[in-house]
Computed example of a mutant assay.
Amino acid sequence: MPKPKSRSFAVIGLGTFGTTVASELARFGNHVLGVDLQERNVSRVADTIAEAVIADGRDEQALREIGVGSYDVAVVAIGEELDANILCTMNVKMLGVPTVLVKAMNRTHHRILSKLGADRVILPEQEIGRHIAQMLHNPLVRDYVSLGNGFHVVDFRVPQSLDGTRMDKIGLSEKFDLRALGLMRGSDYVDCRDAATELRADDKLLLLGRRENLRRFADGL
């Protein structure tokens, strides 16, 4: 499998959220520029990412001088200062950054940023809260990804009650309108397209479907 192409990211605002994003992107092999007005925040990530610069995201000229406009993606992670967040978003858009992601503080802020042309607006606390609530609601769900239009992919832990059950006996498509995308048993892939495949407790089953159907399947076990 070919290695994913690395991209360049400018992360503006190096609080907890911005520092985490910048550090993880760098760990994946991307070129990351970190920008913050506070020297202590810049110093904290200086040894982790490619470049760390003290600059004011509200100052278009300052962002221009450090080359933010040449980056593939800008992540505006400025937290509590609403005016700074909005001005920085406007600046990176005017500098021509192709993709702009912005951290929002509330839904009203979300609407403003969307009007300004942000490609994606993130409400970290709400997104993480929904994620955790889903996993707490049903401990069999290890993780999930929303695909839009009501569809999700769920990493589902097979319970003891399904141990030894054949794939064609659980009625995924007939009863629940779900599709099995894959099955992992430990570190081994098992072909779940074979109707005779038997599930084992603690297998990881990747399921695709609408949220209500996934919940109906999980709640019935």
Score class of each variant (00 low, 15 high):
74 A>N: 14
41 N>A: 13
28 F>H: 15
37 L>V: 10
72 D>S: 12
73 V>R: 04
67 G>S: 11
69 G>W: 12
58 R>H: 09
61 Q>P: 00
30 N>G: 04
75 V>N: 02
58 R>C: 14
61 Q>M: 13
32 V>H: 00
73 V>N: 10
72 D>M: 09
70 S>V: 14
55 A>V: 03
49 I>C: 07
47 D>V: 07
34 G>F: 10
38 Q>D: 14
56 D>G: 03
45 V>M: 03
17 F>A: 08
30 N>E: 06
42 V>Q: 04
68 V>H: 07
29 G>I: 04
34 G>N: 08
69 G>P: 12
59 D>R: 11
22 A>Y: 02
31 H>F: 12
76 V>W: 10
55 A>L: 07
69 G>K: 08
57 G>D: 14
32 V>P: 04
43 S>W: 00
48 T>S: 12
50 A>F: 02
41 N>L: 10
63 L>Q: 11
74 A>W: 05
76 V>C: 12
19 T>C: 08
24 E>K: 04
19 T>S: 15
42 V>T: 07
22 A>W: 01
36 D>N: 15
49 I>Y: 00
52 A>M: 09
23 S>D: 04
17 F>G: 11
52 A>R: 06
50 A>L: 06
30 N>W: 00
59 D>H: 12
31 H>L: 15
74 A>P: 10
29 G>F: 07
23 S>L: 03
62 A>W: 00
20 T>D: 14
74 A>Y: 06
70 S>F: 10
26 A>P: 02
23 S>Y: 01
51 E>R: 12
16 T>Q: 07
54 I>Y: 01
41 N>Y: 05
26 A>R: 05
